[in-house]
Design a protein around this nucleic acid. Structure first.
Lengths: 380, 380
DNA sequence: CGAGTTATCTTCGAAATCGAAGGAAGTGAC
DNA sequence: GTCACTTCCTTCGATTTCGAAGATAACTCG
């Protein structure tokens, strides 16, 4: 049972406010939406009748009558989201407030090409839906993260590296043939940023750095994902200061990625005779105080920090959140901080937080849910 | 005669659309505001009755009946704006659509301190108003640009260099004692960006670089000025790659400003035995094909371009507009372009325009008008 | 030059939204 | 406990906004 949410205009606004956790009562909704309390009441009634909202107990008093708590009805629908990596896919079902119902990870080779990969994801969605969601609860949207650039205008993959067969593939159109629903296709770092944003509710401007096999970055401006013309957030091919000269896969010398990515660290460790298979293994080495690993990670942090310096001065965010598998290595964050504090303008760092990402491993899935909900509730 | 605009909510929206030139007819307003055509007609009638809007002839047909052109009434009010520099102030009066009525430049030493300087500006405003504006036309807002950082929360000047006596001075509060009106206080590069933005109506994301005595930059995201926490847009203290090592006034080595600003070029020319007093003189030398000057400017452009490379990848704007007195030297723009095209990701430069600023010398004043109008029309 | 097309603007009944008033359900002071 | 006060939510008449239909006015093309 798939169907679009029957919401237009202000109904969508109200649902979104509840879904994102910004509002919990009719009074909250009136305050945040700008509508009159009476209109809110009417609308909420309609949404409850439509089975989208539900009343659930009462909230805590703020000095007067207790509010009647509003939640999205569990039967209102689910979202199916995936985060595609090079060798695996993480997928899950979320309720309409973005809370995960199920999350699992499956092996999946992106090199098998888009048709195969997307088919597998869709099959997995079907399985999960059959197993975990009653048939009466409709699917309301489908979204996926892609480890490469996505053109926001066409929702096609553009000039990806390491994704043979995907170039210019119309991912959204392909999914649309299987699902007549709102479809989201977005770069994985952007999804991660969108997910992280919900954990920093009072912060408008965020940079979210993903330090894993590659180095990604997503940007939140005024609480919303900044896409630019589709490529925004790239920091991996910034030129870093260096004595030697390393040619990056992109063809230019001395890209940040060639020095500070998980892939680069893995290669450097191999030169020291230490073999690791995944960036997470490097974290283990650091925790075991293997000097080569610690030194490399510290260096990577400093390099990332130097790049962030430029961006912090320019963009002047409230928060720089650092996630990705490498971020579990403490020296990384420490040396990023040191570089930024040292070199940035005092005005730019005055109230800046540089902190570990809060959203955890499912950040991208949560972000997909957040953006998808937005899309599903904004239509018409 | 000073008074606040008696506008609330949707009335303000309509006025703003006309003022910013986005709408010229009732039909435009209906399309852009989302209101029904009938509501627009009613409102417009009210605004005309209130003396804020006026009908003026008819526009060009788009294949059907000609629209009746709407303009802000010339009697609707004026804005007084100033752009403060180190040794002079540029000031002007604008009508409510942001069109300059008078602009003039006066000598004015910022080092005389805020009280004196602001007093002079206000006196100048009074003179201009008495001379150029009928008493019946009310002043609707006052704004000024500051050549230093402004805290957007308090509208105070914070840690400015080269502005003795101004640190932490509450500029807006001080002006408010003389004018009971909307007051705008903003960094000059930000004002320039806001002014420039109106010349790129279909472009949402802009970087506006001001290459003059210093190097400033303003950022427009989604059509609106991005302030961050107040320091956004700084690019002058980014570290550039360099063999030697020059200590910048900020205390750090190898800031962009120490290599590519008008001040730095002036100093470098002096070492070659060529004395110039203003950055504009350097442009003259370049036009006269003085090799030292050309080479220096070309180098400055390359350095600025290298910094922009990072920011273009990250922010992925539609346009990079280059203004400021140095921008009149052709090699500057050319070498900026070369550096960016060479090093940026193809995806980021695919549709990027790197172009001379369009708004001209009054950019900051126009920007002040634009932001001030926004402020005056948003209240309540 | 007249008929068809396109676009702008107004009219008017229907629908939505608002806001003041009031009831409901709490908190905190005495 | 009682009383004053706060907050939450609903009721209901007044107002605003909408949208379909029509009037007006121009353009285009045979």
């Amino acid at each position: 049972m798939n169907e679009r949410l029957p919401v237009q205009g202000a109904h969508g606004d109200l649902l979104r406010l509840v879904a994102t956790g910004k509002a919990e009562s009719r009074a909250d909704l009136a305050r945040l939406s700008g509508l009159a309390a009476s209109s809110v009441s009417l609308r909420v009634e309609e949404l409850i009748d439509a089975g989208l909202l539900a009343e659930e107990g009462s909230g805590t008093s703020r000095g007067g009558r207790r509010p009647r708590r509003l939640r999205l009805s569990p039967t209102a629908g689910v979202l199916a989201v995936a985060d595609l990596g090079a060798h695996h896919v993480r997928l899950g079902l979320l309720d309409l407030s973005g809370t995960p119902l199920v999350v699992e990870e499956r092996p999946c080779e992106i090199a098998d090409g888009p048709q195969t990969t997307l088919g597998r994801i869709a099959d997995a969605f079907d399985e999960l839906l059959a197993e975990h969601v009653p048939p009466a609860v409709p699917l309301r949207g489908v979204g996926t993260g892609i480890p490469g650039p996505v053109d926001p205008a066409t929702l096609r993959v553009v000039t990806p590296s390491r994704m043979p067969g995907w170039n210019d593939f119309p991912v959204a159109d392909h999914l649309a043939t299987r699902y007549d629903l709102p479809i989201l296709v977005e770069n994985d770092a952007n999804l991660m940023a969108a997910g992280e944003a919900r954990w920093w509710p009072d912060h408008e401007n965020l940079m979210v750095v993903k330090a894993g096999t590659g180095i990604g970055c997503g940007v939140i401006v005024n609480g919303r994902l900044h896409r630019g013309r589709g490529a925004a957030g790239d920091i991996s091919h910034v030129r870093v200061r260096s004595d030697s000269s390393v040619i990056c896969a992109c063809g230019h010398p001395d890209c940040l990625e060639a020095y500070a990515s998980g892939a680069a660290l893995t290669a450097a460790l191999a030169e020291s005779g230490i073999e690791v298979s995944r960036p997470a293994d490097i974290v283990g080495l650091v925790n075991d105080a293997v000097p080569e690993a610690t030194s490399l990670v510290r260096n990577a942090g400093r390099r990332i920090g130097e790049v962030l310096t430029v961006l912090v001065n320019f963009f002047n965010p409230d928060v720089v959140a650092v996630g990705g598998s490498l971020s579990a290595a403490e020296p990384l964050l420490t040396s990023i901080r040191a570089a930024v504090w040292e070199r940035c303008l005092p005005l730019a760092t005055r109230d800046l937080e540089i902190a570990p990402a809060r959203a955890g491993r499912d950040a991208a899935l949560l972000g997909a849910g957040s953006l998808l909900l937005e899309a599903a509730l904004t239509q018409s």
